[in-house]
Amino acid sequence: MREQYRAQDGGLLEGDLALHPMEQFTRWFKQAAAPGSPLPEPNAMVVSTADAEGRPSSRTVLLKSYDDAGFVFYTNYGSRKARDLSANPHVALLFPWHPMGRQILVTGTAERTSRAETEAYFHTRPHGSQLGAWASAQSSVVASREDLDARYAELAARHPQGTAVPVPPHWGGYRVTPQTIEFWQGRENRLHDRLRYVREPGPTPTWLVERLSP
């Protein structure tokens, strides 16, 4: 079970990179999401957090937006990841684009999005997903699948298709402000390209690019 990576377009060199890491992310993301891409969900990312005692946990969520300020995802504020982030805002993101021989690794800090931003996104979700945000007390113990389905059915009767679903007060977004963003391109013989942007302090953020040994 060993894959020999062969880089697209001859690998990743420093001269290939955009000046800003989010511009570079956009380049790769457009390729990952293009028609014919081997990735079924290119916006799927692994979010890793640690609690106040340093115990880590990871899960896969969907990236819902990004810009120069960072990466945004949404969740239940009572979930394990949200509890972790309340105690320790440091977070890592991983985009595992293995069919393309690529990964993107992000480290940074997370903070909640504004309520207005959360509400605007919530109303774009499918009706069933809006109900699901109310039905599931994410990460808590549930008695049975039947109990969860009964909660959903009750909500579906109360808010039938075509009616407005209020935004749960316990649900919302996080924006991850990156401190480092690494672009990993697989190469033959495990001599991969790893180019990392590092945010340098200052009133106007600037980025240093480092090459890491594979």
Rank of each mutant, 00 (worst) to 15 (best):
R6L: 14
D9K: 08
G11C: 06
L12W: 03
L13K: 14
H20T: 03
Q24H: 06
T26G: 02
K30S: 14
Q31L: 14
A32L: 06
A33W: 01
A33L: 09
M45N: 00
V46N: 13
V47F: 08
E53G: 11
T60A: 13
T60D: 07
L62F: 02
L63Y: 05
K64W: 08
S65H: 05
A69Y: 02
F73G: 03
T75F: 00
G78M: 06
S79D: 11
P89I: 02
P89F: 01
H90R: 15
A92I: 11
F95D: 15
P96V: 06
P96H: 13
H98L: 15
P99M: 02
L105K: 06
L105R: 15
T107V: 10
A110E: 12
E111V: 11
R112E: 12
S114H: 01
R115D: 15
P126T: 12
Q130D: 01
S140H: 04
D147K: 05
R151G: 03
R151P: 04
G162R: 04
T163K: 01
T163M: 08
V165G: 10
P166E: 07
V167S: 00
P169S: 11
W171I: 02
Y174E: 14
R175C: 11
T177F: 03
T180G: 02
G186R: 08
E188C: 02
E188H: 05
D193K: 01
Y197T: 13
R199P: 13
E200V: 05
G202T: 08
P203Y: 11
P205T: 07
E210C: 00
R211M: 04
R211F: 07
